[in-house]
Simulated assay, not measured.
Amino acid sequence: MFDHSRGVLFPSRLPAFHRFAPPQAAEELVQWFWLPEWNLEPGVVSRQTVVSYPALNLVIEPRGVSLVGATTRMSERTLQGSGWAVGALLRPAAVHTLTSDASSLVDTEQSFRAPDLHAQVVAAMGSASDRHEKAVDIFARWLNTRAGSIPSVVQHANTMPKVLIGEGGANTPAEAAVRLAVSLRTLQRMTHRYIGLPPAAIIRRRRLQDAAHVVREQPSVSLATIAAELGYTDHAHLTGDFRSVLGFTPSDYRTESS
């Protein structure tokens, strides 16, 4: 159902990684759940490099629970030994119940107090069978209970992810505003409240994810063609976007990922 590698710059370096559609109880709250696990030999290091989706995540790990904000740059994490995480890519309806200021979390994370949720997910992940499904079900039910009834204004905001980062998403903030039947100013307030980034930055991030995927997976397609098909002004615009967020050019990325 999901492309597990979208947003991951070097999929061959991934440990075991899964994405799950949310159970019905959490469909209005979560875009999907994600779950990496690793058990590396002593001395082995796995360096994960990701262009994250422009959204907040609630993440459970053995050490605790964190609310992670949207990012404006590439993120890296070095894995060693063994471990796991269970994360939820949040929709506005869930963000509404967890923080009143998504913009304060941009490029950072904060500890989130949810001891019962943490204990139950840790116990589920320690089971031998169906641990992924059990952990996701516990997580979904906890979010659903916390959210309760979703206000109508938040339900409207919940349509933003599809318009801004979904397949066939809007190419400009103005187009996104039209699709959502709101003014551009209202759209800006919505993204600030529930994601923490302006609409243009969210669209750029989706386009960069798409570009990285095509550069890596379709080596025969020219960079100029990729730029044109994804709405970049030209090849130089694509290269500039890569440099500013990732720190390298599309050509360098294509070479390293081949």
Rank of each mutant, 00 (worst) to 15 (best):
Y194M: 08
Y194P: 07
Y194H: 08
I195E: 07
L197E: 04
L197Q: 06
L197F: 02
L197T: 05
P199G: 02
A200H: 14
A200T: 08
A201E: 14
A201P: 02
I202Q: 08
I202W: 04
I202L: 05
I203M: 07
I203S: 05
R204Q: 13
R204I: 01
R204K: 09
R204G: 04
R205E: 13
R206A: 10
R207C: 08
L208S: 11
D210R: 12
D210M: 13
A211H: 14
A212K: 06
A212V: 15
A212E: 14
A212L: 10
H213W: 12
H213D: 14
H213E: 15
V214S: 04
V215G: 07
V215H: 10
V215D: 07
V215R: 05
V215P: 08
R216N: 03
R216Q: 06
E217A: 15
Q218N: 03
Q218I: 00
P219W: 00
P219N: 06
P219E: 03
P219S: 11
P219T: 02
S222T: 14
L223H: 15
I226Y: 00
I226D: 01
A227S: 02
E229F: 03
L230D: 01
L230S: 01
G231A: 13
Y232T: 03
Y232I: 02
T233H: 10
T233I: 09
D234C: 05
D234S: 14
H235T: 02
H235E: 09
H235C: 00
H237A: 15
G240S: 14
G240I: 04
D241S: 15
D241V: 13
D241W: 05
D241L: 08
R243S: 04
R243V: 10
R243C: 00
S244Y: 00
S244M: 03
S244T: 05
V245N: 06
V245L: 10
V245Q: 11
